[in-house]
Write a protein that binds this DNA or RNA. Structure first.
Length: 213
DNA sequence: GTCCTGATGTGCT
DNA sequence: GCACATCAGGACA
């Protein structure tokens, strides 16, 4: 696998979210390489998406979502957790993929130490957990995955089955969209109310869009 | 295993 | 003010 280029991210957000599953995310924060395989991700697309941070239009916080694909959008929430997103689409279209869960691979001991846990499945099985394990904070907002020490390697090497469901933690705002994607039966997928609709592995792009939109 | 709650800072109304 | 793309820990069963 190789570092993914910008044109991987500058595409339809749902395609990017699906194609990121099985890829490896790497972080070299503090000169320590940590990372693992992405097993769960969600799409947030445009001002019309009521759950997307760009819904109110451009603000100081979300402005980066309107810009170049392949940059990190990190924000702080619930008073203590950082959420890590990757900007997608072309400039002018505010959209991103939230990385929701990772299966630990590189330097598991260091990540377990950062998380203060001995259970491998508690290291990065949620969006707040994985940023802590990888050492990613709002300081990394704007980092370029195509030219910094945080990046994603792909394409995926394993054959995987991909499931789609409604998104997590966004109340009743826009929940009919099945824009959460995760690897079937992976133990590091986050605990969440799963409205599992369908395995999307076999679907081609057009069929996939018809189904998810 | 399930359900419920408290912790905690920031952005936007 | 308040909602928030969350998590850990406790009370149950």
């Amino acid at each position: 696998m190789k570092r993914l280029p910008r044109n991987f991210y500058a595409r339809n957000t749902i395609d990017v979210a699906i194609d990121l599953l099985g890829c490896h995310i790497i972080s070299n924060v503090g000169d320590i390489k940590t990372g693992g395989m992405i097993v769960e991700a969600e799409a947030y697309i445009g001002e019309d998406d009521k759950a997307c941070h760009a819904h109110p239009g451009p603000t100081a916080r979300n402005l980066i979502m309107y810009g170049k694909a392949g940059l990190l959008y990190v924000y702080f929430t619930y008073g203590m957790y950082n959420m890590m997103n990757i900007i997608t689409e072309r400039p002018g279209i505010p959209a991103a993929v939230l990385i929701r869960a990772v299966e630990p691979i590189y330097n598991i001991d260091e990540m377990a130490h950062r998380r203060n846990t001995a259970n491998p499945h508690e290291i990065s099985s949620g969006p707040g957990k994985l940023t802590q394990a990888l050492g990613i904070t709002v300081e990394h907002k704007g980092a370029d995955l195509c030219g910094s020490d945080i990046y994603v390697k792909g394409p995926r090497e394993k054959k995987i089955e991909i499931m789609a469901s409604s998104r997590v933690g966004i109340g009743e705002r826009w929940n009919e969209k099945l824009w959460r994607f995760f690897i079937k039966d992976n133990p590091d997928v986050s605990k969440a109310p799963k409205i599992i609709r369908q395995n999307v592995f076999e679907l081609d792009k057009a069929r996939r869009m018809e189904y998810t939109l």
